[in-house]
Amino acid sequence: MTLKDLYQRPGFLLRRTHQISAAVFENACASVGLTPAQYGVLTVLANEPGLDQTRLARALAFDKVTVMRVCKGLEERGLIERRVSEHSRRQMAVVLTPDGQKLLQQARGPAEQAYQRLLSPLSLTQRQQLIEILEALTQGLADDARAPFVPLLPADAADTPAKPAAAPKARATRTNTGRTKAAPRR
């Protein structure tokens, strides 16, 4: 394989695009001090107050450790609160504080600027195509993901009957030896 081949591999280009996307976002949101992950958590919580950490992680396709780390940082800044869930004493419900709501509102403009900056090299048609291709990739390869993605339904979708979710498929997991084994069904 040549370097040209490496640099044209989808994995390399997606990783590089993610690096650039994060940098563009962090530069635009430097004044509010938010990372893309933190902004995602605040946005989900603004739409679903009191969400438990497991559903929060799934709504953003984070693993449990990542969502706990992001929540800890936001909690230390006084932007969210974690409390025992009303529905289950074993789960933590997460809510925005008034400071978190205020910061999220301040971040919306810079986040939109980052979004526009990231897509600025593309025509409107290319932007639409990119989103469609990325959605096809993420949906088509969802079973290979390390963290599940379970999107939350928007409030206006509650009136539309939801399709039943398919049973989760068994996924291969890597052992510490590098071998793969089938994951048990949940």
Rank of each mutant, 00 (worst) to 15 (best):
T2E: 07
L3P: 02
K4N: 13
L6K: 04
Q8T: 13
G11D: 05
G11I: 04
T17S: 15
T17Q: 13
Q19W: 13
I20S: 03
A23W: 09
V24K: 12
N27C: 04
N27P: 00
C29V: 05
C29P: 01
A30G: 03
A30K: 13
S31P: 00
S31L: 12
V32W: 09
G33K: 03
G33T: 02
G33Q: 07
T35R: 07
P36T: 11
A37F: 05
A37G: 03
Q38S: 11
Q38F: 00
V41R: 02
L42R: 06
L42Y: 07
T43L: 10
A46I: 05
N47K: 12
E48Q: 14
G50H: 03
D52E: 09
D52S: 04
Q53F: 02
T54A: 14
T54P: 00
R55D: 11
L56C: 08
A59Y: 07
A59I: 08
A59K: 06
A61V: 00
A61G: 01
A61P: 00
F62S: 00
D63M: 01
K64P: 09
K64F: 14
T66Y: 00
V67G: 05
R69I: 01
V70S: 01
G73S: 13
R77T: 02
R77D: 13
R77H: 08
G78W: 10
L79M: 04
E81C: 08
R83P: 02
V84M: 10
V84Q: 15
S85N: 10
E86G: 05
E86N: 11
M92I: 10
V94Q: 08
L96C: 09
G100N: 07
K102S: 14
Q105C: 04
A107T: 05
G109I: 05
A111Q: 07
Q113K: 11
A114S: 09
Y115C: 03
Q116R: 12
R117M: 07
P121S: 03
S123Y: 03
L124P: 00
Q128K: 10
Q129N: 06
Q129D: 08
I131M: 12
I133N: 09
E135G: 00
A136F: 06
L137T: 06
T138W: 05
A142P: 00
V150S: 05
V150G: 00
L153E: 02
A155F: 09
A155K: 10
A155L: 12
A155P: 01
D159E: 11
A166S: 11
A166W: 02
A167M: 07
A170G: 09
A172T: 06
R174D: 03
R174I: 15
R174K: 15
T175N: 14
T175A: 10
T175I: 01
T180D: 02
K181R: 15
K181Q: 14
K181I: 15
A182F: 02
P184Q: 09
